[in-house]
Every structure is written in structure tokens, then in C-alpha cells.
Design a protein around this nucleic acid. Structure first.
Length: 200
DNA sequence: GCGACAG
DNA sequence: ATCTTGTCGC
């Protein structure tokens, strides 16, 4: 599937974006996928959706898509409107096979996608500056696979990478624009809130 | 052989 | 991802 990832471009028109996040419910053996639909550029929540799938695959670093992608795509399909872009909680091409969760979902759903991970899977980097918007390249095998981005001053950096049909520069700019107030971009933050409000 | 390892 | 308790800081 990695040959189907498009690593350039940006959404032609941006009216609605979505955040996708998953939540594991161990006692039920389920994964819940949450989708939060927001207006752009005002980032107001306009709709949210939840979907669950049975979980039969263990967590293995590098194989996260096999656990989460089905539930995320199901939640995305529940939205009454198809977003112009999705922010996915996980890596895009910053992955050993260049096919992390965000790229997997982007290709399968054929939608522009950005990977926004809270921590590193692979790659080396120098710490970015402390100011908002500071970034440093994430490198693996001599290749730039993403950006380590300080989305807010002084916070732990995010790991931004190309998901599908978005260039890295555009992805970084979009994440900054989507995170005016918190460390996580608003779409991912609201999807995360929605998914854990449910399990607990 | 050992450490590292999205969620 | 999940669990639990305290603690620090804005």
C-alpha cells in the first residue's frame, strides 16, 4: 500500500476538517473510533461520530493500523459530511515501512490526511526551539520522514508527518493553524475527548 | 545480544 | 491504548 501514498499537495478547498482518534476498551474487547468534524478556519465542532469494532490483534509497534484503522474509518463513514482533510492520532509515513496509521487511513479512505503523534516511533532529531512553531526534521536512513513540531511554547513537541495527499510543509502549517490554544490540534483534541468520554 | 518501540 | 495516586504549575 505504501506505493499508493501521495506525499505532495494540499486540500484544494478547506471547509471542514476532522480529527480521528481511537480508544481501547479492554473488558469489552472493542476498539472505539471517534471522529470530530470541525469547521475551518474557525475550528468549531459541528458533528461527532463513534463506531466500534471487535479487537483481535495485539498492539505491536509498527502494526497499529491493524488495530485502529477499521474503527477510525467506520467513524469517518458515520459523518454526514465528508471532511476535506483528516488529522489522525498517530504517524503517517514516519514509520518503518512508510505506512503508519494516518497514511493507511488516508489511502483506504482516499482522503487528505496528516499524522499527528504525541511521541516518536522511529527517526532521529535535534530538539526544536522552545517557541511556538519551532520545528526540526525527523530523519530515518538519511530521509526526512516528518517534523518534530513545538505546537505551543514550551510544550512537548508533536511528531507531524505526511499522511496522504498533503506535503510535509503544508502538514506543518495546517497543524499550527489548527492548534491555536492547546498542544494538540483542535480536531484531534476533540476526537480524543469524545472517545474517552465514552469508555469511562 | 540488547535496547527501543505510534497507540 | 488501560489502570492508579500524588504532585506541580499556570
Amino acid at each position: 500500500m505504501r506505493g499508493r501514498v501521495v506525499a505532495t499537495g494540499k486540500p484544494a478547498r478547506l471547509r471542514f476538517v476532522a480529527g480521528l482518534d481511537a480508544h481501547y476498551q479492554p473488558r469489552a474487547g472493542l476498539v472505539w473510533g471517534a471522529a470530530a468534524l470541525l469547521s475551518w478556519p474557525h475550528l468549531e465542532l459541528v458533528e461527532s461520530a463513534l463506531a466500534c469494532r471487535p479487537l483481535d490483534f495485539p498492539y505491536v509497534p509498527g502494526l497499529l493500523s491493524f488495530r485502529e484503522a477499521p474503527a477510525l474509518i467506520a467513524a469517518l463513514d458515520c459523518l454526514s459530511r465528508r471532511p476535506d482533510l483528516v488529522f489522525v492520532d498517530g504517524q503517517g509515513i514516519a514509520h518503518p515501512r512508510r505506512l503508519g496509521l494516518a497514511s493507511h487511513v488516508g489511502v483506504l479512505a482516499d482522503i487528505p490526511a496528516i499524522g499527528v503523534a504525541k511521541s516518536r516511533l522511529i527517526g532521529s532529531f535535534d530538539p526544536p526551539g522552545q517557541e511556538k512553531g519551532a520545528s526540526a526534521p525527523l530523519i530515518d536512513k538519511g530521509e526526512v520522514i516528518g517534523a518534530v513540531l513545538r505546537s505551543r511554547a514550551g510544550v512537548r513537541p508533536l511528531f507531524v508527518s505526511i499522511g496522504h495527499r498533503v506535503s510535509l510543509d503544508a502538514a506543518v502549517a495546517l497543524v499550527i493553524a489548527a492548534a491555536p490554544r492547546y498542544r494538540l490540534p483542535e480536531p484531534t483534541r476533540l476526537a480524543d475527548k469524545l472517545s474517552r468520554m465514552h469508555g469511562a
